[in-house]
């Protein structure tokens, strides 16, 4: 629900996740969560997404969603992956285990620290993917510097 008001907000301050995805295979649906980045500062949801990412995703997907030697860069993935597909993979997990690949994404469907904040995590990574957020710890709107 909170995203409706955010959507309205993003119209006002001219920031959002919408424009960058036109034409990509991950079609943008109207109710997809968005992020707010205002002069390099993020809203509380996006910041929480950064934090939850650090808890549950960082150790495989690397700092700032940038990927590791054994898990894909999510800043790249979100250029193609729809919000629906993103949540599906997080909730149900995914396995790519073959002769050459041993990649396993766990199912986080019952992990509160992830599932409750899935939209926040999406928003944070989408901001990174849209190159609206640089690497590192984002500053919150209202933070001094």
């Amino acid at each position: 629900m909170r995203y409706k008001s955010l959507l309205a907000l993003s119209g006002l301050i001219g920031i959002g996740a919408v424009s960058a995805i036109a034409g990509s295979s991950g079609a943008k649906a109207e109710n997809d969560p968005v992020y707010v980045v205002q002069e390099g500062h993020v809203d509380q949801h996006t910041f929480n997404g950064y934090r939850r990412y650090g808890e549950s995703c960082h150790r495989c997907h690397g700092p700032d969603g940038a990927g590791s030697s054994y898990a894909p860069s999510l800043t790249e993935s979100l250029k193609h992956l729809s919000y629906e597909d993103f949540t599906n993979v997080i909730v149900n997990g995914r396995q790519n285990v073959t002769k050459s690949q041993n990649n396993v994404m766990p199912a986080f469907g019952t992990t509160e620290d992830v599932v409750l904040y899935i939209d926040d995590i999406y928003g944070y990574l989408k901001a990174r993917s849209d190159e609206r957020l640089p690497r590192g710890r984002p500053k919150r709107i209202g933070d001094d510097s």
Binding site: Y50, R51, G54, S56, R59, P63, D113, R137
Partner: peptide, 22 residues
């Protein structure tokens, strides 16, 4: 940089409770 935050324990799930950048 190291920022601790509160987490809950669930068996078999990450129990980290900090974000860091290097």
């Amino acid at each position: 940089d190291y920022e601790p935050f509160k987490v809950s324990y669930t068996a078999g799930q990450p129990y980290v409770g900090a974000t860091l950048s290097m």
